[in-house]
Structures are given as C-alpha cells and as structure tokens.
Simulated scan of single mutants.
Amino acid sequence: MELDSILLNRKEKKLLKKIIFLSNRADHGLASTDLIKQQSEYDKYYFSQLRDFGLIGTHHLPEPNEKTHWRPENGTYVTDKGRHYKDWHWEHLRIFIYKSVMTPIVITLLTNLVLYLLEKHLK
C-alpha cells in the first residue's frame, strides 16, 4: 500500500511512535512483541492496521539457525515506510496547504491587480 493512501489516526500514530522507540533500543532493530503488548498504547486492532499498511512487520523464528545471527523470537520491526511516515505526512500537509491556501490567495491578488489596472486604464 502506498503512503499516499495511508492516513493514521492518533492512536495508530502513538503506537507506531512507541514501536519505533522500542525497536531503536532493541538489538538488531527487533522489539519483542510481548514487550509491545505490555505498553499502554498497544491495541490489537491498531497493531494489525500498522502491519497491514506495511509500516511494521513481525519476525518469527522457532529456533535460531546460528548463534551469531540470533534474533529474538516473535519480534516486531519497523519498515522504511514506517520510519519515514512522519516526514511524508508533513510533506503531504505542506503540499495540501500550498494548494488549498496559497493558490487561492495568489489568484485573488492577481485578479484584483488586473481589475485595478483595467479600471485605471479605462479612466
């Protein structure tokens, strides 16, 4: 799913922020899913929504293949889309404001200028 079609509500944003925080503190970028479930921001529905949007992912290994590449079982990681969602959101908001606010203001100013010049020229 593309970022253009993803709009998170307040609770999903808080949960994503918490998962990013926990995954940054964890080894290998994998936060324990059990630890995430203990957080006050956790809600099964919002967790599933973030996973369905592709902002987070889960990693399950029944047993480690090699001791040197061991990762915690039942871990949650943040994808690149999840890490950069906030940047994308602010850029999208800036474009929206430009289109919705600045464009009508500029058009109004230009229209008034043209009308003023026409009125002045016709006198």
Results as ranks from 00 to 15, higher is better:
residue 101 V to G: 07
residue 19 I to P: 02
residue 28 H to I: 04
residue 42 Y to F: 14
residue 26 A to T: 11
residue 97 I to L: 15
residue 44 K to Y: 08
residue 64 P to C: 10
residue 53 F to H: 04
residue 83 R to I: 03
residue 68 T to H: 12
residue 43 D to K: 09
residue 91 E to C: 06
residue 81 K to A: 13
residue 83 R to S: 09
residue 101 V to A: 10
residue 20 I to N: 04
residue 61 L to Q: 15
residue 62 P to F: 11
residue 54 G to R: 09
residue 68 T to L: 12
residue 63 E to R: 10
residue 37 K to Y: 09
residue 98 Y to L: 12
residue 53 F to P: 00
residue 21 F to G: 00
residue 95 I to C: 05
residue 41 E to L: 01
residue 69 H to V: 12
residue 88 W to L: 02
residue 86 K to W: 05
residue 71 R to D: 10
residue 48 S to G: 14
residue 67 K to T: 11
residue 47 F to L: 07
residue 100 S to M: 13
residue 47 F to M: 09
residue 55 L to D: 03
residue 82 G to A: 09
residue 37 K to N: 11
residue 79 T to F: 01
residue 101 V to H: 05
residue 49 Q to N: 14
residue 75 G to S: 08
residue 69 H to M: 07
residue 27 D to K: 11
residue 53 F to I: 01
residue 30 L to Q: 09
residue 76 T to D: 00
residue 74 N to Q: 02
residue 19 I to W: 00
residue 34 D to A: 12
residue 71 R to M: 10
residue 65 N to R: 11
residue 27 D to P: 10
residue 68 T to E: 14
residue 23 S to I: 09
residue 54 G to S: 14
residue 93 L to G: 01
residue 64 P to H: 13
residue 79 T to N: 04
residue 101 V to T: 04
residue 84 H to V: 03
residue 45 Y to H: 15
